[in-house]
């Protein structure tokens, strides 16, 4: 296990180069301070303080049930939809408190897109899937603009060439990996700054997974990405920063190579060497 991860890090050629760039231009996109989440009586997240860097990939790892999804869903306030869920602490996007009363959730979710564990295209055409966000937000005024935006988004998600002849087909007719890229295109179409991904590859085969990982690496140029993953190889391959969660606590965070090669906490050490999780 250990060696695989080390290999993955070595195999990721951009890792060193981009780290150098990051060091110069590093800017915090989102900050979260002392975030606590309760589901009714259950204390699911305890005092999580974490900075999300702009235009880089932050991976959240940890054994299942440790609160990774919960944390991710705090970032675009998806937890609002769960009646029993209570979030406290300070969460900021570009210095603006996202839980402030003046913040419109609709606006917020337009700038923080989300991709889910299971590909969930709408049971509509491929085109309508991508066009839905721009339509409800009124981003385009005429059909030509919409066509262009849909094409652009599909291109960015690396899907356009595969579906350009059948934009009218239902999104659900695509393969799992294509569906997930469609969901990414759909999120991109709204013009977000941050994209949250909750185990986006867990239901995909290795080839589709590799495709998505490549895509994440490309998207990093323009978007801030937070990805939950249960695969440590994946975290090592795609992310620049890694945060390790355990039973609702944020145990350790740092540069991905450091976390995987030289973890400070022994729980992290135990998890990445496969002793538990």
């Amino acid at each position: 296990m250990d060696e695989n991860i080390a290999e993955a890090i070595v195999a990721a050629p951009e890792a060193d180069a981009s780290d150098a760039v990051d060091a110069e231009t590093f800017r915090v996109k989102m900050t979260t301070r002392n975030v606590n989440v309760h589901y009714a009586e259950k204390h699911a997240l305890r005092d999580v303080t974490l900075d999300i860097g702009e235009r880089e990939v932050t991976a959240l790892i940890g054994p299942s049930g440790c609160g990774k999804s919960t944390y991710l869903r705090c970032l675009n306030r998806m937890n609002d939809t769960i009646d029993i869920c209570r979030v406290t602490g300070r969460l900021e996007l570009d210095g603006q408190d996202i839980y402030d009363d003046s913040v419109d959730v609709v606006q917020l979710r337009a700038s923080i897109g989300m991709v889910f564990q299971k590909p969930n295209p709408f049971p509509k055409s491929i085109f309508d899937n991508v066009a839905y966000g721009p339509r409800i937000h009124g981003l385009v005024s005429d059909r030509a603009d919409l066509d262009q935006l849909v094409e652009q988004s599909l291109r960015k998600a690396g899907l356009f060439d595969e579906v350009k002849d059948r934009l009218g087909d239902p999104g659900t007719s695509l393969s799992g990996g294509q569906q997930q890229r469609l969901c990414i295109a759909r999120a991109i179409a709204v013009g977000p700054e941050v994209i949250l991904m909750d185990e986006p590859c867990s239901s995909l085969d290795p080839i589709a997974t590799a495709r998505i990982e490549e895509l994440i690496d490309e998207l990093r140029q323009n978007y801030t990405i937070v990805i939950v993953t249960h695969s440590m190889q994946q975290a090592a391959r795609v992310s620049q920063k890694t945060a390790f969660f355990h039973l609702g606590d944020l145990i350790e965070q740092g540069e991905t190579p450091q976390i995987f090669t030289n973890p400070r906490d022994e729980k992290t050490q135990g998890y990445i060497t496969g002793r538990f999780g």
């Binding site: 998806m78 337009a110 969930n120 839905y132 999120a187």
Partner: peptide
């Protein structure tokens, strides 16, 4: 109607009313 449809729409910034009228109700 699967919750994933609701989540997808909410995640794109649809209001609850839009989620219901655009997605849940037709399904």
């Amino acid at each position: 109607v699967p919750p994933s449809v609701r989540e997808a729409a909410l995640g794109l910034g649809a209001s609850r009313m839009q989620v219901v009228s655009h997605h849940v109700l037709p399904l």
